[in-house]
């Protein structure tokens, strides 16, 4: 048995009810900052916040490094999750990208991004959002010009 495990066992004997410090913290545990946001939301109406100061809805989850990070989005779902995943995967500097909705009754969406050394995970996320905006512009232009052509041809 490796020595590391042994010493941990010895600690456990000293304190009968061992503190679970060695166990990885739950990725879903909200940080203090997030909790404040949520309690703020409950008091005021959500729509009002959207119009005024938008509460922070994105955070990096614990255990992330520069090139490999998980991001937690509040109040986002498959709509943004899958679209963002696709556009981030299109980035050649990204090694891996995936999204998940950890639990259906929590309004949360997580995105995992792992990049090569050429960029960082949060830069890849920011680029993804920018690319998705550009995509929307192109779709709007093409859609409306073709609509005009179609209506004119009728």
């Amino acid at each position: 048995m490796p020595g590391k495990t042994k010493s941990r066992c010895a600690d456990a004997e000293e304190v009968a009810d061992t503190t679970m410090e060695d166990a990885p913290t739950s990725a879903q545990q909200p940080s203090d900052g997030m909790q404040e946001d949520q309690s703020g939301n409950n008091e005021e109406e959500d729509e009002k916040d959207e119009e005024e100061v938008e509460p922070q809805r994105v955070r990096i989850l614990p255990g992330s490094s520069n090139t490999a990070a998980s991001f937690e989005f509040l109040k986002e779902g498959h709509t943004m999750g899958n679209a963002l995943r696709y556009i981030i995967m299109k980035n050649p500097d990204v090694e891996f990208c995936a999204y998940t909705i950890p639990h259906p009754s929590e309004d949360k969406m997580n995105i995992r991004i792992q990049t090569y050394d050429t960029t960082t995970a949060s830069a890849a996320l920011a680029k993804g959002l920018q690319d998705l905006e550009d995509l929307c512009d192109v779709v709007t232009d093409e859609f409306w010009t073709k609509r005009h052509d179609f209506m004119a041809s009728k």
């Binding site: 940080s31 922070q56 614990p62 992330s64 920011a126 959002l129 905006e133």
Partner: peptide, 18 residues
């Protein structure tokens, strides 16, 4: 597009917890 532009500054202001 609006959803993206709302999220963009949020990614910049992100709370780093690691």
């Amino acid at each position: 597009k609006r959803k993206c532009s709302v999220l963009k500054p949020q990614v910049t202001n992100m709370v780093y917890t690691f």
